[in-house]
């Protein structure tokens, strides 16, 4: 019920935003911001709408992943609409560069071989052939 209501509201919002031109954060501004100038095309419009809805969700997800609420807000705020749009709904699969300690034996052997062949570079002691 709650979800259905939420979905209906967001659909109504999306429609109103798309049909009323693009007045999102810029309504009644006397000066037109560069971001608005730069985004006068269909793809950018989609990104803006998507980002509008995804920002808050992303903040909550960051919080759930161990970032404190204030920092999560700042971090999401620092991302552009296009970046938010690229991340929205894909946070789980998005590569997070860090490093992984330990790998089980099969993976170890495969990686050892691929390291030697020169496809991967996991172990500091391998030197690839050729």
């Amino acid at each position: 019920m709650k979800i259905a209501l939420k979905r209906m509201t967001s659909q109504a919002l999306i429609i109103s935003i798309l049909t009323l031109g693009s007045p999102l954060p810029y309504a009644n501004a006397a000066m037109i911001g560069t971001a608005q100038v730069a985004t006068e095309n269909a793809q950018a419009d989609r990104e803006r709408v998507l980002a509008f809805f995804a920002r808050e969700e992303l903040q909550q997800q960051f919080h759930a992943l161990g970032v404190d609420a204030q920092a999560a807000t700042e971090r999401v705020a620092a991302m552009s609409d296009a970046e938010i749009a690229r991340l929205a709904g894909k946070l789980d699969q998005a590569p997070a560069g860090g490093d992984i300690v330990g790998a089980f034996v099969t993976v170890f052997i495969v990686l050892l071989i691929t390291d030697i062949i020169g496809l991967t570079k996991i172990f500091p002691f391998t030197r690839s052939l050729r």
């Binding site: 971090r75 991340l87 998005a94 590569p95 997070a96």
Partner: peptide, 23 residues
């Protein structure tokens, strides 16, 4: 670290590196 690191993912996202570079 506080600008890019996601503790539960034990890593950092590309988008956050971009954003942090600007910050």
């Amino acid at each position: 670290v506080p600008q890019v690191y996601l503790p539960e993912r034990q890593g950092s996202l590309q988008m956050e590196l971009l954003a942090s570079a600007r910050r």
